[in-house]
């Protein structure tokens, strides 16, 4: 039986476009799971996880690895009968009045390391939890934001790339979340001892 954190990470991978291994590599999965639980009315996150899982998830791969290398993602692909699992997640979740806003907040959480409060209308319809306010989850969460990886950059004030790295083109931008994507990509120029300035300068 796939546990809750695995299901959380698998859904997060579909929503963010980053491989599960990359998400685990940030070290933030459990923190985000807790932060999400604390910011949502009871049961909402489980509803979201259920919507993001194949109906057979429990029985299809008992005890099976949900993680790295799990190239064939069972999850939503099964649910959508073989179509693109991401598109299926989009249909099943992002278009849903209740789960859509929660999923979007989850995407922002992974990209920014910060929780974004759900809209007022959502609160009126489905209830509010005390921690559902805009906040940076922690100093570590800020630094782990996927937005910096997506940009081929690094969080301002942390994980610096080394003297002169800024003079080189940005790191090759991987958009493919294929199995085997390294969890923590080293910036291209990290540790480069000397940097020659561009000939044009």
């Amino acid at each position: 039986m796939e546990n809750r954190i695995d299901r959380f990470v698998r859904l997060s991978a579909l929503l963010t476009g980053f491989a599960q291994l990359h998400l685990l590599g940030t070290g933030m999965a459990e923190t985000y799971l807790r932060a999400t639980d604390a910011a949502l009315p009871a049961g909402v996150l489980d509803e979201l996880l259920a919507a993001g899982s194949p109906p057979s998830a429990g029985s299809a791969s008992p005890g099976g690895p949900a993680l790295p290398g799990a190239a064939a993602r069972p999850g939503v692909s099964a649910l959508a009968g073989g179509t693109d699992p991401e598109a299926a997640a989009g249909q099943a979740i992002l278009g849903d009045a209740k789960l859509g806003p929660v999923a979007r907040t989850l995407i922002l959480l992974w990209y920014r390391g910060a929780w974004t409060a759900l809209p007022q209308e959502w609160h009126s319809a489905y209830g509010a939890a005390p921690r559902d306010v805009d906040h940076v989850v922690s100093a570590e969460a800020y630094q782990a934001g996927l937005q910096w990886d997506a940009a081929g950059a690094h969080p301002a004030g942390a994980r610096q790339q080394g003297y002169g790295a800024w003079a080189s083109p940005p790191a090759a931008l991987e958009t493919e979340s294929a199995p085997g994507t390294t969890a923590v990509r080293l910036p291209r120029q990290a540790g480069a001892p000397t940097v020659t300035e561009g000939a044009r300068s």
Partner: peptide
């Protein structure tokens, strides 16, 4: 995410193509 409605690899690709 909120205005363009992107998620998943499309979101990531969009950001990789614009932020830099």
């Amino acid at each position: 995410v909120t205005k363009q409605g992107l998620h998943g690899t499309k979101l990531r690709a969009h950001l990789a193509a614009t932020l830099p």
